[in-house]
Write a protein that binds this DNA or RNA. Structure first.
Length: 288
DNA sequence: CCCCAGGTGTCAG
DNA sequence: CTGACACATGGG
């Protein structure tokens, strides 16, 4: 069992803090959105935001972190300035979802780095969160030691493109190695492609993301939701398929496409947020 | 040996 | 459009 690539320093020095009342950090970090954070002792998390190593925790309705990152960056990363009352209204209006509101209130969608989101969810296909996190850590460890700066952080598209596909296999990616490697080459050679995706509509952005190797409809929706803030996106994985079938289709057999259209018609621009509550609710058994 | 995990690519009807 | 199967790897 390998150690996490970050040290086990528990004390945050020169901590900054910001108001974070309607925010459940624990649930947000544990809801399968990001794979690069290590939970240290207590409720302190350590990882990488905006290319900076950072530790943070939440206490007394405030979010505390060490000195490397601006308040603005952090509030943006955790989507802290979003008014969640429309989402809450939708949850409370549906008897089948009230339990998710009661247990998960404060769960927010993280606005993660485009490349890291793309890479993370290529890794996620037919995989489990534990192993995704292990692969993520192994990649940080391997590529960081190759850096002259020695900074610990997830490799850029360029750094991966400059290595061989077999490097990724040795880090445990399995059959996803050629997918991630080819994607890294494309991103490294087309650094502007993320701007296009960000500025386009959900539908057009979806077409673009689907062109990446190893990215199908489900992963594409994850990328659009978590890395590009396309809140109509509604990723349908095995958990979502199961819970939506049970709650809204009387357990009838339904395709992923139908589930997605159903959700987008029902929740519109909040479908992505509702999906996160559904996903975590289904995984933890809160929704029955 | 089996099945499953935040699925995708491919090929057959 | 839907259905089957292979694909790496680790855990139960």
């Amino acid at each position: 069992m390998k150690n996490p690539p970050f040290d086990n320093r528990l004390i945050i020095t020169h901590a900054q803090s910001t108001e974070a009342a309607d925010f459940n950090l624990e649930v947000t970090m544990d809801s399968g959105q990001v794979f690069g954070f290590v939970k240290q002792g207590g409720a302190v998390y350590r990882g990488d935001i905006g290319g900076q190593n950072i530790s943070f925790y939440r206490k007394n309705n405030r979010l505390f972190w060490d000195q490397c990152i601006s308040e603005k960056t952090l509030r943006r990363y955790f989507d802290l300035d979003r008014d969640l009352s429309p989402v809450y209204r939708a949850l409370k209006a549906d008897p089948k979802l009230v339990a998710a509101y009661n247990s998960l209130r404060g769960l927010r969608l993280i606005q993660q780095d485009p490349w890291q989101g793309l890479a993370g969810f290529i890794l996620s296909s037919n995989n489990n969160v534990k192993r995704i996190q292990r692969i993520w850590s192994a990649m940080i460890e391997y590529y960081s030691t190759k850096r002259k700066s020695g900074v610990m952080g997830f490799p850029s598209a360029r750094e991966i493109a400059d290595t061989h596909e077999n490097t990724l296999r040795q880090l445990g990616l399995g059959y996803r190695a050629p997918f991630l490697w080819a994607s890294s080459v494309f991103v490294a050679n087309n650094p502007q492609c993320f701007e296009y995706i960000r500025e386009e509509s959900y539908e057009r952005a979806l077409e673009k993301v689907l062109c990446f190797p190893g990215i199908g409809p489900k992963v594409a929706d994850c990328v659009l939701l978590y890395a590009f803030q396309k809140y109509e996106a509604f990723p349908v994985d095995v958990w979502i398929l199961k819970i939506v079938r049970r709650l809204y289709f009387n357990n009838r057999k339904v395709s992923e496409d139908r589930v997605r259209s159903f959700a987008q018609a029902r929740w519109g621009e909040h479908a992505g947020y509702i999906q996160q509550y559904l996903f975590h609710g289904a995984r933890t058994g809160i929704l029955g």
